[in-house]
Computed example of a mutant assay.
Amino acid sequence: MDPDAIDAVTRVPHGGESDPELVDFSANTNPQTPDGVSGVYEAALSAAGRYPTDDYCEFRAAAADYIGVTGTEIIPTAGGLAGMRLLCSVVIANGDSVAIPQPSFGEYAREVRLHGGEPTFVRHDEITDIDPAAHRMVIVCNPNNPTGESYDHARLQALADRCRSADTVLLVDEAFLDFTSEPSLAGTPGVVVARSLTKIFGLPGLRAGFLVATGDLRERLNVARPTWALSTPAAAVGTHCLADTDFVAETRERVDTERKRMRHRLAERFRVYPSEAPFLLCETREPVDEVLTEAREAGLTVRDATTFRGLDSHIRVAVKRAHQNDRLLSAFGV
């Protein structure tokens, strides 16, 4: 990290509501978790009086089976964002350009700046077509947050090929890919995939995730990763969740059904963008502050999407359980 950059960087706003009286549509996390999580967590607490085994063999094996790579390609991290910070620390030198989609997850630009790099913003729907030669790294969010669309796999693969030829690292943030049927780029040479248990398994406070990398980059990440990066409970719960593929399939089906229903209804009032993620981006003709207040008065919170670079009249709503979604639709009069 570049100490001189810290004074010029600020915190990034995110969704998430601390008031338990409000139904939170601002954070894109699964409202359900796999069966057995509480029991696994409680059992792991008895072992938390000792340091974790730093090789995390069981967690790596579960992650590798889940995503379809070998265990040696898995780098355990305390969530997807911790993995991205690790990658930036290994890859970026002062002044390096990093291509970042716009609009997209605000932490990308923050991490690049903290490590002395220079964000180069590219329209999110053009990021797969760029020439990577001028950049040390290219970042793609698939599906993109907050717009919700996923990228054509062949175009991503072609970008990966160009990045490899240019000696440019390609980071693909697949935090929401579990909600789609699209294949992962994990295991592709020159590509680093970031994954999190936050979204699909509904465990944002657990802070568990992993990177997938190959070759020399994998070796460098493994050497540089923090010792004991995952707590014992996080590793145990993560291992348990990653084995529950039925839960993932059921979640995907539920979200797909509810997202289609919500998009159709919300379109009566907003311009609603196509999405393959567990959220919908809505453009409003009304002042965003008024829409946020309207939701809050109904006991709900939605995301102020004007905090995303390039958006000025948008909100983002998560896809939750059917009865919760009904409350949102009723609150908006659709």
Results as ranks from 00 to 15, higher is better:
Glu107Ile: 00
Ala134Met: 03
Gly16His: 00
Ile130Ala: 14
Ala47Cys: 05
Ile139Tyr: 07
Pro52Ala: 07
Ala133Pro: 13
Arg50Ala: 13
Asp65Ile: 01
Gly39Trp: 03
Glu149Met: 12
Tyr108Thr: 05
Ala48Ser: 15
Pro76Ile: 14
Ala78Cys: 12
His124Arg: 02
Gly83Val: 10
Ser38Gly: 02
Val112Phe: 12
Thr120Gln: 08
Val140Trp: 06
Arg60Met: 12
Gly49Gln: 03
Val98Cys: 01
Thr72Arg: 10
His124Pro: 00
Val69His: 04
Gly16Thr: 02
Glu149Tyr: 07
Ile139His: 05
Ala62Cys: 05
Gly117Arg: 02
Ser104Lys: 13
Val140Gly: 11
Pro132Thr: 03
Thr120Ile: 07
Gly116Asp: 03
Tyr108Glu: 01
Ile74Leu: 03
Val138Phe: 00
Gly83Tyr: 08
Ser18Arg: 14
Gly83Thr: 04
Pro31Asp: 03
Gly68Lys: 14
Arg136Gln: 13
Val40Tyr: 12
Val138Pro: 09
Asn30Ile: 02
Ile74Gly: 02
Asp19Val: 14
Val138Asp: 02
Asp152Tyr: 04
Gln102Gly: 05
Ser89Ile: 04
Pro76Gln: 14
Thr77Gly: 07
Asn30Val: 10
Ala134Asn: 15
Leu87Cys: 11
Ala48Gln: 11
Val90Met: 11
Cys57Asn: 14
Val140Glu: 04
Asn28Gly: 09
Gly68Val: 10
Tyr56Arg: 03
Thr29Lys: 02
Leu81Asn: 00
Ala133Lys: 15
Ser89Arg: 03
Pro143Ile: 06
Cys57Tyr: 06
Thr128Cys: 01
Leu87Asn: 06
Ala82Lys: 06
Ile92Met: 00
Ile130Asn: 06
Cys88Val: 05
Val40Asn: 10
Asn145Gln: 11
